[in-house]
Amino acid sequence: MSSVELKKVEKHFSGGVVAVDAIDLDVPDGAFVTLLGPSGCGKTTTLRMVAGLETPTGGEIRIKGQRVNETPIHQRNLGMVFQNYALFPHKSIFDNVAFGLKYRKVSKSDIAARVKQALDIVRLPGVEERFPTQLSGGQQQRIALARALVIEPDVLLLDEPLSALDANLREEMRGEIKAIQQRIGVTAIFVTHDQGEALAMSDLVVVMNKGRIEQRGAPAEVYEHPRSEFVANFLGNANFVSGTVAAVNGKRVSVVLADGARIDVADSARAVEMGEAVNVIVRAEKIELGGGGLAGTIAAVDYLGSTARYDVTLAGGQKVTALATIRDGARRVGEAVSLAIAAEHCRIL
């Protein structure tokens, strides 16, 4: 069953800005769905339309099967977590978490019990008396999560909840949010522009670009089988190697580069013709250094600790980036290398 459905939903702002352009989306019950895309692609606007904070200029939004376009915000029973936490600064933590319950006519004693339970869930028991400014950023974000979850929302909406935290805390919190979501079984829509977050947390990744959905799918599917150059590029380090089709055998394609080197593509996403100019897409970590058919020279080295990123200039002048585990010291600039690219890791779009 779908928890949230968007049907041709669009949002035009005054001044001709098309923030969201007729998107369709089904969020299955209990799923963790991520809207992923660059800044300004309409993620927040989409989320705010689900919450009711923004009115769609077209299309239909359904929550639990009911059309909610006309339902006022306060009757939608959603939980929302904001990037800047948005805790009420003039209210104690208890009053912050209890806020939604107060407007749901829950009895005083039930409120106390449920606030306590919510604070236990986010592992911050005993902070009821404090004020938001007396908590760290990570703690404030946990309280924001508790405040959203305590009302047992139909859908949990999260707008870049981790981006204000520092890197270590971010990784810790993303594991925690995911664990809590799974334990409670609440449907979640998570907005981020961080591909790592999207891949690590989601059941379904929805890649957005310029107000449209570019691709949707399980994290591995979207990562391994990008359907557009945009997706390939946005989700991790993709190389685009241009060449000419030299042989076609069903979905198996051979591409010859300017210097005469060959790259085999196991599974072309579309039909190509002999002699056609194409871009072969291959991710940086799929390029192996040493013992392959492509010759090149290392132009730059980015030392990352356990791995290194190498900019390699191919014999024909094209540049590719390779990400490799360091075994016996990193390679040096100017070193000649040979590159191996397995056919099943190459794609033509």
Partner: peptide
């Protein structure tokens, strides 16, 4: 912060509340 009002609305407040 406008998000504070949004947060209150999502949590169940009418505009006046």
């Amino acid at each position: 912060d406008r998000n504070l009002e949004s947060a209150a609305r999502v949590l169940g407040c009418t505009p006046w509340q």
